[in-house]
Design a protein around this nucleic acid. Structure first.
Lengths: 301, 301
DNA sequence: TCCCCTTTTTTGTCCTGGACAAAACAGGAC
DNA sequence: GTCCTGTTTTGTCCAGGACAAAAAAGGGGA
């Protein structure tokens, strides 16, 4: 189960904001409009939310991520919500995660996971490891998480181990690489750095010169860093949760500010598909397209 | 300069919250009480903050981190603030950062930084690298950042490169290690993962079995993960910015929930010194104490 | 049928000004 | 020095109204 048990049984509105990611104003306006959640009050009249309600809020957030609308979801009874979650679970394809990986994740078995990566690495090489194992695995893990089969710690554990493995590979690469020089980062709203790391590994495997700034970089800083580092390309990664509108705005601002000679490459599940037409922005739907994009760049220069 | 230029010139209160970390309520109450900041309003009466004011807010936050109080700082003129910052800059020891490292950071020179790490690694070994170079370097970089000598991209770049180097070392370590089995993580409010990584490297160098969950882990999940992973020790890291009160509360809750047989080790600049007396919590003031702590544990088991 | 544009509905964020809890400070007693 | 206690400062919460932005629904064309 996923419920965050124990700890203080009653949470203040600030604590709920931190736990669920819903802003305080939103929680209050939901209570006013839809009659849920209905926290009790302490002596001073301040809201105190019960575990059950917070858990239910979490369910609602999960369903909203998949397109559900607050107006409907908040009017539902707990039973109806459970039914929806169950239906959603059934609708999804059963996990493709091999039993091995799943077991290793749940048991937090460092060694087993590492052996698995290593085996695939030896068989398919670094690029094959990423395109054939890691990328689909990430999708599977995301779905298993939505189904509630994996918990917070399992997912964090996976992220850590994968990061160590990929950075280990990166550290053993000969540097400096050949052109193009690529600057990697994400916009400030995007804190997921794993996609970026995968891109860095792919590019390094292509022999490109990579300079990663990690996630969460303001647009103006990206521009300055690209200039001081003498980058040929700026590569941005967007995870699925990224709001499309902000992505588009951020990209246009960046494109307008960045010297035209520097290319802008964009990828990830949350990359806005509309940029396809925009001049000077290259969109990658799949991380497997990276090698072609690099050789294309090289043939042009 | 450190100012985040370009981008929209006027920011909404939400944007300022994201940029400065000050809550919306706080910004409004400061305006009411101290008369600063004084945003202009748009047609709808919503606050719009200018770049200058946001920059000044950032200065104020910086001085508050060092013990300044809002009541004084917000009453000051821009000139007085600048004078304070300048005085503070002068009071600090001039940077001990060797010119090499500083130049490599500013130029985003991947190769130079890596060579530097590698040289120290060969000379002093992994543990020496961390205690003699990385730990003091982190302090220096933090101070250079406060003085405004390093920008956001420089610091991110350093973090990325260091992470790749350390994880590279980690990946090449023989596993599984010997006892104790250590579970590493941070509390949910702490998002800095670098200290944790340094600890993981030190422990691995001692031959211990490490299982890192990365940063931001809820207390209840820590407890469950420690049990399923069969951990002997849970190690937590706190960066300097961590609010002491929350740290103490979180630690006590965790200690109360965790089985008594599992030890709790705590370290980092933000680790609350008061836990010294608490039973079942081990405090490390310096990362160099780790090897001794491990051999102490081993002699007891 | 698909795509693009406009209108309506829904939903999230912002506003004011008052209140009060928690943290920081200051002053004393041991 | 360390502990306690009262005072000031400071951050967070409240209510209920307002409105901007996003999403859905409706309405032509191609």
């Amino acid at each position: 189960m996923n419920t965050t048990a124990s700890s203080p049984v009653l949470l203040t509105i600030g604590a709920v904001e931190r736990e669920t990611g819903l802003m305080k104003d939103t929680l209050r306006v939901w209570e006013r409009r839809y009659g849920f959640p209905t926290p009790i009050r302490d002596d001073a009249g301040e809201r105190l939310y019960s575990r059950e309600q917070v858990d239910r809020l979490r369910l609602i957030c999960r369903l909203m991520d998949q397109g559900g609308r607050p107006g409907k979801l908040l009017a539902m009874s707990a039973d109806e919500l459970d039914a929806l979650i169950a239906a959603d679970r059934a609708r999804r394809v059963p996990t493709r995660l091999s039993g091995d990986v799943m077991a290793a994740l749940k048991a937090h078995d460092v060694e087993a996971l590492r052996r698995h990566f290593q085996a695939v690495l030896l068989e398919k090489g670094l690029k094959g490891l990423i395109t054939d194992l890691i990328a689909p695995l990430n999708v599977d893990i995301g779905e298993a998480w939505l189904r509630g089969e994996l918990g917070v710690p399992d997912e964090h554990f996976y992220t850590e181990q994968l990061q160590t493995f990929l950075r280990g590979a990166l550290a053993s690469y000969p540097r400096p690489g050949k052109p193009p020089r690529v600057l990697l980062t994400t916009l400030p709203e995007e804190e997921h750095g794993l996609g970026l790391l995968m891109v860095e590994v792919m590019l390094s495997a292509e022999g490109a010169h990579c300079c990663s700034l990690g996630p969460r970089m303001p647009v103006s800083d990206i521009v300055r860093a690209a200039q001081t580092a003498g980058a040929d390309v700026v590569a941005l990664s967007f995870s699925a949760a990224f709001p499309a509108r902000q992505a588009l705005d951020g990209l246009r601002t960046l494109r307008a500010t960045l010297p035209p000679a520097i290319e802008l490459w964009v990828g990830g599940a949350g990359a806005p598909t509309r940029v396809r037409g925009e001049p000077g922005i290259g969109l990658m739907r799949d991380i497997g397209e990276l090698p072609d994009t690099v050789s294309d760049w090289r043939s042009r220069h």
